[in-house]
């Protein structure tokens, strides 16, 4: 019951946010929402299923271009283009499944890196489809006659998609599928002896992860309104990876925190001219030093009963309320 109230309050706050926030902040929030979805996708694959990927920008790109092209070229409605982009990207996830069935850890990471590099190389050269290096303008999203042309409207769009994707992720993680991912990650042999098919669940993991990232990509193209191949490089793959690891591996709330943090950090730093990169790097190092298991690991640690005693009183009250 308390959980429900809490969620209600959080939702109300998020829904009312446009009343208090500047349009630019809402835009950043929408962008952060896009990354929340991508990070959830990566976390399901890497955090839960234990399959390293540093090539997720490739999936983001495929999702972004697919949805943009479906609307621009085929005239499909935008609300259809995003799930279709997710599905198509999900199918491309099987490309990585092939190496993943043979490779582990760092070897798989290189295969995914290669996938990202390949997508980044093919996109600008496929001029007929993608418009080459200079990129392409994405048509405005129109929902049943209502043009989503303002940051506020795009914020609501993103918020609703993020909530749906979070719920789906929670269902997956709490089901036999999520358990099968973790089982294969930690004890491959025992998992198989429990009847879990390695091939099948790796396939699920890659499909789901690519699907999520494809949805994120589709949303990205409409939020930003313009896409070009240069955005989907190794740096972006690493960004999504950092969001996942800083937030907390195998944690859904962690993914949200990680994506929000790294989406807003550059904007908090925009005042420090010339210092941004330094502080950004230092922030990464500090988070790793003080929160080795990510933001969510940190929260979990400080809400353990023995640590709770040491928290300041008001904070303790909040934690105790949340736990019910």
């Amino acid at each position: 019951m308390r959980r429900l109230i809490l969620w209600g309050v959080a939702l109300c706050l998020l829904a009312l946010a446009p009343l208090f926030l500047r349009s630019y902040t809402l835009y950043i929030l929408s962008l952060a929402g896009v990354y929340v979805i991508a990070t959830l996708g990566l976390n399901l694959l890497t955090g839960y299923a234990g399959q390293l990927s540093i090539g997720h920008a490739g999936f983001l790109a495929i999702g972004a271009y697919t949805s943009a092209l479906l609307v621009a070229r085929l005239g499909l409605p935008f609300w259809l283009s995003i799930p279709l982009a997710g599905l198509l990207t999900g199918l491309t996830g099987f490309i990585l499944l092939v190496p993943a069935l043979r490779l582990t850890a760092i070897y798989l990471a290189i295969a995914t890196l290669g996938f990202g590099a390949a997508v980044a190389e093919i996109l600008p050269r496929w001029t007929a489809l993608t418009g080459g290096y200079q990129g392409m303008k994405v048509p405005k999203a129109v929902l049943f006659g209502l043009a989503l042309d303002s940051d506020v409207k795009l914020y609501y769009l993103t918020l609703s998609i993020v909530i749906v994707m979070l719920l789906l992720a929670r269902n997956i993680v709490d089901s036999k599928m999520g358990r099968a991912f973790i089982a294969l990650r930690d004890q491959e042999r025992a998992a198989q002896a429990c009847g879990i098919s390695l091939t099948r669940y790796k396939a699920y993991a890659f499909f789901i992860s690519a699907f999520y990232t494809g949805i994120a990509g589709g949303l990205y193209s409409f939020v930003v309104g313009y896409i070009s191949p240069g955005e989907f490089d190794l740096a972006k793959s690493l960004l999504i990876f950092m969001m996942m690891a800083l937030g907390g591996m195998a944690s859904l709330p962690g993914s949200v925190l990680g994506a929000l943090f790294l989406s807003f950090l550059p904007h908090w730093l925009s005042g420090f001219r010339g210092l941004q990169q330094f502080i950004y790097g230092a922030a990464l190092v500090l988070v790793v030093i003080f929160m080795p298991y990510g933001f969510w690991g940190f929260v979990r640690r400080w809400t353990m009963p023995d640590k709770l005693e040491r928290l300041p009183r008001p904070l303790r009250a909040v934690v105790e309320f949340v736990r019910g």
């Binding site: 089982a183 930690d186 004890q187 002896a193 429990c194 009847g195």
Partner: peptide, 23 residues
């Protein structure tokens, strides 16, 4: 295949434990 053995009705335990430690 390994995962099909259980479907036939054979379950097992492991010498060094096959539990999933973080569950």
């Amino acid at each position: 295949k390994p995962h099909q053995v259980l479907e036939r009705g054979i379950a097992r335990t492991f010498q060094n434990l096959g539990l999933f430690p973080y569950m």
